[in-house]
């Protein structure tokens, strides 16, 4: 059995073999793998007795359930109005330069994917950055780069 099949089996065991478990199972895979490969989705379909198309249908609806490969760390910058007014453009520019990618791209070493997001719920402390699940409010270009450097050090 491949790694991904083992992971899917474990997740289905934990959450139950029903359609209602589809979201937690997909979320569990993304947590480990950062995205849903075709193999993963087919494996989920088998385990939950759904068609692969239904699994893909659900997955492709949600921003956080990526179906294209992502880096080990997914960086999201809020681009909605309050953060826009507080200077999200400078943060994005600083990160694009530091990571040498454009928004939407993954670094060649596959350590980072840079994305934007809609309002993250920290508008009073904008601009805000999310790295995987961790929140970094009130960032400056300088702070954003420091946070990324920490992740560089801690990502094998």
């Amino acid at each position: 059995m491949s790694n991904i099949e083992t992971l899917v089996k474990t997740l289905v065991e934990k959450h139950g073999k029903t359609r209602n478990s589809l979201m937690p199972v997909l979320q569990g895979i993304v947590k480990e793998e950062r995205f849903l490969s075709e193999e993963a989705m087919i494996s989920v379909a088998c385990e939950l007795d759904l068609s692969a198309a239904e699994v893909y249908g659900t997955a492709s609806f949600y921003t956080f359930l990526d179906t294209v490969p992502r880096g080990k760390n997914v960086v999201r910058i809020c681009k909605t109005i309050s953060c826009h007014m507080k200077g999200k453009d400078e943060i994005i520019e600083a990160l694009e330069n530091a990571l040498k990618v454009k928004v939407g791209e993954t670094t060649s070493d596959k350590k980072f994917t840079l994305l934007t997001a809609n309002c993250l719920g920290w508008c009073h402390k904008g601009p805000v950055m999310l790295v995987n699940d961790a929140v970094y409010p009130e960032i400056t270009p300088q702070k954003a780069i420091e946070v990324i450097e920490d992740y560089v050090k801690n990502t094998k």
Binding site: R19, N20, T58, Y62, F64
Partner: peptide, 25 residues
């Protein structure tokens, strides 16, 4: 239960769909 980054899932019936493992429509 966790969401996965879709504003529309705050709409009550979309939220139920999402909890049932479907697209948040």
């Amino acid at each position: 239960k966790s969401g996965s980054g879709a504003y529309i899932c705050g709409e009550e019936s979309a939220l139920f769909e999402s909890m049932e493992g479907k697209r948040g429509e």
